[in-house]
Design a protein around this nucleic acid. Structure first.
Length: 336
DNA sequence: AGCCAGGCTAAGA
DNA sequence: TCTTAGCATGGC
């Protein structure tokens, strides 16, 4: 039996599939999602507005996962269930109809709190790559430099009966995401062989820079392990610190701060969000520089700008996905 | 077949 | 300060 978790204002699928994490995939037909988090394999599915089923090591295999246990705390933290979505949304500009429409459409989407190094490394790998390719790279890195997780361990904590498992046979080996040290010890060619291309040298140098203590990694990511949700460092400092790493510009630094370090105001601008911003907020204006977009975002969206970004981003991607890509601009899609 | 992908960096205006 | 080319590769 899976454990049950009570949730409010939560949409598991939107949260896992909105493009912030790369190691989740659907498995089976019954809405199960499977992913490696830390040293464990998690399987999750949402069975109603208020219930998520979880098969995780450390789960008790009983009906409801008792809040306060280590596993419950970990999951609540990773999924950002320990936050009030209505309170976050209340900080958005009240008159921004396009944003509120996106929020309604994807109600329950939450920004995750991922492991910082995995997040940073994944986004270093992401530049000029499609999401399928990024997922491939991350899996290759895990397989070659991560710790193997035996099939039996992947099933730990749940039922021993294979038919209770969404996965079926349960003979597959999993791998943790490699540590900073593991990547730092790798050779350039080994990373290259993980299809990183020119990003290989950036990832290697980033790992070695962090490993040798040249940037204050511990402080940037401190909120991850401490009591507080976020790092004690201020946003601008943390951003500048991350951008010292090779291959890490504003976009990737902001992704890391938002998706892993608890900086809710971090606002990554990629091509998708740029399209959305231009269409929604700068319609009719011919020349809008990237800098203007960033400044607009900072002043317009407020302390949870990063969350607003994620709603707009996901929305934009779905718009594009459901529309023909050629011969039709997004201008006629509207903001409804 | 070609086009393009969730960028960063250096170079040159 | 803003724009542009180059970087490599696989998926569609």
């Amino acid at each position: 039996m899976p454990d049950l978790i009570n949730v409010f204002d939560f949409d598991l699928t939107a949260t896992l599939e909105c493009g912030q994490a790369f190691r989740w995939s659907r498995c089976g037909e019954n809405g199960w999602h499977e992913g490696v988090v830390g040293k464990a394999v998690w399987r999750l599915r949402q069975t109603s507005d208020s219930v998520v089923e979880a098969v995780v090591p450390g789960g008790c295999g009983k009906k409801t996962l008792p809040p306060g246990t280590a596993t419950a705390t970990l999951m609540s933290r990773y999924l950002s269930l320990d936050r009030s979505l209505p309170q976050i949304v209340a900080t958005f500009p009240a008159d921004d109809q396009a944003l509120h429409a996106a929020v309604r459409r994807h109600w329950g989407l939450r920004v995750l709190r991922q492991e910082p190094w995995e997040c940073l490394a994944s986004f270093i790998a992401s530049s000029t790559k499609q999401i399928v390719q990024i997922r491939q790279i991350v899996e290759l890195l895990a397989r070659r430099f991560g710790e193997p997780i035996a099939p039996a361990d992947a099933r730990a904590g749940g039922s021993r009966r294979a038919q209770d498992w969404p996965l079926g046979k349960g003979t597959e080996w999993y791998h943790t995401f490699p540590t900073i040290e593991a990547i730092a010890r790798a050779t350039h060619d080994q990373l290259w062989n993980c299809k990183l291309g020119f990003r290989a040298k950036n990832l290697l140098a980033a790992a070695r820079t962090i490993d040798s203590g040249k940037i204050d990694w511990a402080k940037i990511t401190d909120g991850q392990n401490g009591q507080d949700a976020r790092s004690p460092m201020d946003y601008e400092t943390a951003l500048a610190e991350l951008m010292k790493l090779p291959g890490v510009g504003e976009k990737i630094a902001n992704c890391t701060l938002l998706f892993a370090c608890g900086f809710d105001e971090a606002f990554p601008v990629d091509v998708w969000i740029e399209r959305a911003l231009r269409r929604i907020y700068f319609a009719g204006k011919k020349k809008v520089t990237a800098r203007q977009l960033r400044e607009f975002a900072r002043s317009h969206f407020g302390p949870y700008a990063g969350w607003a970004q994620q709603y707009l981003f996901f929305n934009e991607r779905l718009l594009r996905k459901h529309r023909p890509r050629r011969g039709q601009t997004l201008l006629d899609v509207g903001t409804q």
